[in-house]
């Protein structure tokens, strides 16, 4: 059943509505609830297909679901509708205003209502899809402060990689941080690239979510085997930034092992064809982020490498 969980009047004859599709199982009610949220950034669309697939399969198999799955396909509906990363008109990143406040601005009120609605769930899965510049392998990102508690659940989601990253004050305004610090376990998924749906990744995550539901005792239907993720753990992440401006042309595949000094790609002057930078790997490891958008300035992120590993120690 679809319900509007947060709303506010827009100027002319319309209301912004944040909707939740609540799917209640017909199996034994075990009181459990999982929330799947996406569309916080309007240009990140991978989660749309995941939501659609989860909703379709569950609706066709209600007898195999115990408890409740809540699907929030668009926390920033105006952004998704207009391909705008932030909240249109406000030029505001919605993932920097949580937990919001009931007596704040419209965006802050909506954020507070979202937190209120999700709070108390057993698990919340917050699906992002990078941006238009970078392609990400399906991965879970966990703040080191919550790592111990979240890691067992993250492993159930069948992603390729779990990145336990350091804490940063600025990230305290995110949905995941706000929920995790108030007792609702929240996993952030990053995968694919902005403004696209990557069917392979979406299906991989969908299978992982059903695996999680099964492990929580909420799903008795079929599940597919899920991948055993690489966990960053003590392994460092190295950033490769462009040292020149121009167009970046990669010569490696995404999610491959690479040796220190190996060629990643070239930055070229588009007018003359001159090689501005021969980009090489600063370390051995595995590329889990790779630039998708070709134009680069000095500093543009080209790749992230998980340092070391069994074959690259």
């Amino acid at each position: 059943m679809t319900t509007v969980i947060a709303s506010a009047g827009l100027a002319v004859n319309e209301r912004i509505e944040i909707r939740r599709n609540r799917i209640t199982g017909e199996g034994e009610n075990n009181g459990k609830r999982v929330c799947i949220v996406t569309g916080t950034h309007g240009d990140e669309l991978e989660g749309q297909y995941v939501c659609a697939e989860i909703a379709r399969v569950l609706s066709e198999n209600l007898s195999k679901l115990c408890g409740v799955v809540d699907i929030y396909p668009a926390l920033n509906p105006l952004g998704v509708d207009s391909i705008t990363r932030g909240i249109p008109l406000f030029d505001l990143d919605m993932n920097r205003i949580f937990p919001g406040t009931a007596d704040g601005t419209m965006a802050e009120c909506l954020a507070a209502d979202i937190i209120k609605d999700i709070s108390g769930a057993d698990i919340c899965i917050d699906i992002h899809s990078s941006n238009i510049y970078l392609k990400e392998i399906p991965q879970i990102r966990i703040n080191e402060l919550s790592a111990e508690e979240l890691l067992p659940y993250a492993k159930m989601l069948g992603c390729d990689f779990i990145w336990i990253h350091s804490s940063a004050t600025v990230l305290e305004s995110t949905l995941a941080y706000s929920l995790n610090t108030t007792g609702t376990k929240t996993l952030v998924v990053e995968m694919g690239v902005g403004m696209r749906i990557t069917r392979e990744y979406c299906r991989q995550l969908t299978a992982g979510i059903f695996n999680l539901l099964k492990n929580l005792g909420m799903w008795s239907g079929a599940t597919e085997p899920v991948r055993d993720p690489i966990v960053s753990g003590e392994r460092a992440v190295e950033f490769v930034n462009s040292g020149a401006d121009g167009i970046f042309v990669p010569c490696v595949e995404h999610w491959v092992d690479i040796e220190k000094g190996e060629h990643i790609g070239d930055v070229l002057d588009p007018a003359t064809g001159r090689l501005e930078e021969y980009v090489t790997a600063p370390c051995s490891g595995r590329i889990f982020t790779l630039r998708e958008f070709p134009i680069v300035y000095g500093g543009s992120l080209i790749a992230r490498i998980l340092v070391g590993g069994e074959d690259n120690a």
Binding site: A8, G9, L10, V12, R15, T105
Partner: peptide, 8 residues
């Protein structure tokens, strides 16, 4: 001129 509900 145009304002939303809950605008400051």
């Amino acid at each position: 001129p145009l304002e939303f509900e809950k605008s400051v």
